[in-house]
Design a protein around this nucleic acid. Sequence first.
DNA 1: AAGCTAGTTGACACCGGTGTCAACTAGCTT
DNA 2: AAGCTAGTTGACACCGGTGTCAACTAGCTT
Lengths: 342, 342
Amino acid sequence: MRAATIIDVAKHAGVSKKTVSRVINNEANVRKETKEKVQASIAALDFKRNPLGMALAKNRSFFIALLSDNPSPGYLMNLQKGILQSCTEQHMGLFLYDCSYRSTGLVTEIEDLVENTLVDGLILAPPICDKIELLEMLDARNIKYIRIGPKDLERGESIGFNGMKSSYDMTNYLLKLNHRDIGFITGHPDQESARRSEKGFRQAFEDAGLEVNESLVVQGYYTYQSGINAANTLLNKEKRPTAIFAANDEMAVGVLYEAQSQNLRVPDDLSICGIDDISITTKVWPNITTMRHPLLSIGYQAASLLIDRLKDKKSMMPAMGPDHATIIDGELVIRDSTSKHK
Amino acid sequence: MRAATIIDVAKHAGVSKKTVSRVINNEANVRKETKEKVQASIAALDFKRNPLGMALAKNRSFFIALLSDNPSPGYLMNLQKGILQSCTEQHMGLFLYDCSYRSTGLVTEIEDLVENTLVDGLILAPPICDKIELLEMLDARNIKYIRIGPKDLERGESIGFNGMKSSYDMTNYLLKLNHRDIGFITGHPDQESARRSEKGFRQAFEDAGLEVNESLVVQGYYTYQSGINAANTLLNKEKRPTAIFAANDEMAVGVLYEAQSQNLRVPDDLSICGIDDISITTKVWPNITTMRHPLLSIGYQAASLLIDRLKDKKSMMPAMGPDHATIIDGELVIRDSTSKHK
DNA sequence: AAGCTAGTTGACACCGGTGTCAACTAGCTT
DNA sequence: AAGCTAGTTGACACCGGTGTCAACTAGCTT
């Protein structure tokens, strides 16, 4: 059985298809009786607007894309879930695109994606959101996007976490537990967020009138394996840290693994904490103390914001400027991987 | 700058748009010189076919949807990745839809989804793939789908793992390690796969001439929490099992947590193993022994198969019948969570 | 009653492609 | 040269909607 079209409805209601279109789109200036007649026909024929016809006529695809390249599966999953929820509510489709941040062809790749799928807008997850060349291309093509991340780059709108504050708060928490030899594993050097969290770490020491032990600040790359490697480095120091703070949970899980491999008791011998609150932190033993970054909520808000922007054609994003950055604070979640020193 | 359309190309090449269409679609019966002329114009104008126009004309959306409701994030992530890869290669879009298996409105919900998005076909992940009412609706509407799971239901095409064999092999492995008191945590009672794995477990005992200790077979639901609960039950028995085999990794991780909470050493005091090989199994300490089910590959194959079927309109799926089931064997991956008894 | 205005409606073109069918062409056979 | 056939091409309608604009209507003011 062929699905009913707008013409079928028009015939059934005895009006023109344009009038049916008006009713579907809930436009003003349709006489009440006409509207009711059309609505009755729509119900009678079980008519549903064909999104392809509409998309072609409106020159909009009603799809947005999520661009990601994140090494932490838990991170992406939650973000995606939130985005999906908003898209579903607003009858937009979501296109997933997993790309490689480091690929030299990234910009061309995305350009092709945009041309081939005609997506209306993009959500850029970290670290894609920090790729200046990409942002330039999108601006030049006047394609709207929302960055998930810090607002430092003076481009587009963004929504993100207050990574510096999260890191500051967590460091403070460790200091209050009397830890002084705190190992810190940084994020990927390419990413803005890494700088912010290191800043927060150092600020907390400074505000407490303490010195950071530089030999305990180790480079990480946000991946599980880099967490293991960094932990290995830290735990082999002559003076071992009493706590290790990793710039994300994925690495913190790696630290936990390495500690357990070395027969250290967590938290008695070593406190461990991370940032994000991805699901694995409550699956490993012991559960990991972290700063909760509500990714699902961020995803939801980012998608809602983007879809909003797409609705009013007049307000182009450049006009709104980079000031439109939403910053969300993390929340300390104390679990079983941290305890008082001594 | 407006993107070039087929009419622009036609004008530039001095032919009709139909001829351009023929060249784009690589149809036979276009004179060589004409073809080259058109191709030159396409290159000159950087023309890309508008997928919406094509979709409308062909009455196909070039989108497929993945229907999922899986409690194990790692499981879904890999599956999705494989599907996405195939879709990208074949220029199809992927629509994600996370639904609730137990929701009474599921069938209506999917019906709406199909009507609103006009997806060309569906991939049904477990446990959605076992929902008979849904399959009936899809068959009635003549919508193609591929089920990811066992072929037991005599409907549609499917691609899945040999869950019984995986379970059989794992049980055998434990028996060879001299374990006799093996705790088994079953899958969700609603799902076909759960029956198959329990069958494999029992078969291995039977073939070895041994009796299953019925008090050590405990109900699970494929979730992390159900793994914890089942482990708790098992570890509080007067005679504790020396090994616990969970029907999926997600539960096995729960078992590991519970064992560690109770200060048991794994694998010295208790061997633990699961099925699937999701990423978390190599992030917890110790790494968990499992049967690898190559989800990425399954996802890729399922999508490729579906897209293939969509291409030839003639071969409707009912005609192919349920015999077209691809079964893939798992592979034993021995890690650090299992060891010889005594 | 004529004139005005805001509200209501439909004809028509259009978005960017594909399918059908008829007309034309080239090259062969008779 | 006429007739035939297979290959090549384009005119036109169509997929299912929306935008523009003009025509019509109802109700008001003068």
